[in-house]
């Protein structure tokens, strides 16, 4: 049996995750409620808490993806050549010629496979994700966690595909720099 306090924690984490993706708080709440109820029906099969959490989030991710695809889809009416959403470029990674600064050049992370099961790593990962400018974090999560396609994200957020690519590029640069500094310790600054 899973303690109520664990369920409350799980629910809070799920809601935070859903709210990032779905602006309507009622829809976000509904998605969390449905995912949680569906998962708990079969909770006996999930003795391990970590496993339950992974499983519940996978269900929630599917629900959010469906919601974003259906209710939120609008035709793309605007393109934004200057990419107002994109936030300023992170120039600190490159010098004037566009080459890595000495202390920002990526260095090997070594073997990363074992990290998938490491809760401490995912805590640092979350912190790094939260440090991204909101628009970058949002598209990165939609793309990598919810696994929407590029065109689906562009339709949902009314972004041009080139703006999406700019946002993802900046998000990835910043995320990897943060992880290098905060987890891998391979670069001085992050």
């Amino acid at each position: 049996m899973i303690p109520d306090s664990d369920i409350a924690d799980l629910r809070r984490d799920m809601l935070a995750f859903a709210r990032l993706q779905i602006s309507d708080p009622h829809l976000a709440e509904d998605a969390v409620q449905e995912a949680l109820a569906g998962a708990l029906k079969n909770a006996a099969a999930f003795a391990r808490k970590a496993s339950l959490k992974t499983w519940v989030f996978a269900i929630l991710r599917n629900k959010i993806a469906d919601l974003l695809r259906s209710k939120y889809r609008e035709p793309v009416t605007t393109t934004d050549p200057d990419c107002k959403h994109c936030a300023p470029a992170d120039d600190q990674y490159f010098d004037d010629n566009g080459h890595w600064q000495q202390d920002t050049q990526p260095r090997s992370w070594g073997d990363t496979h074992w990290l998938a099961d490491n809760a401490d790593f995912w805590k640092v990962f979350d912190a790094c994700l939260n440090d991204l400018p909101a628009e970058q974090a949002r598209v990165f999560m939609m793309r990598e966690f919810i696994e929407l396609t590029g065109p689906e994200i562009c339709a949902t957020l009314e972004l041009s595909s080139s703006n999406l690519h700019v946002l993802l590029h900046r998000a990835r640069l910043r995320l990897r720099a943060c992880l290098s500094g905060q987890w891998f310790g391979t670069e001085e600054s992050a």
Binding site: G38, N42, F46, A50, S51, K53, T54, W55, F57, A58, I59, N62, T112, L115, A116, D117, E144, F145, E147, R172, L175, R176
Partner: peptide, 16 residues
């Protein structure tokens, strides 16, 4: 990063 995020540990969710 992509493989870590997309190959989370644990069980596959049901079809629902």
């Amino acid at each position: 990063l992509r493989s870590l995020i997309r190959r989370q540990p644990g069980d596959k969710p049901p079809e629902d």
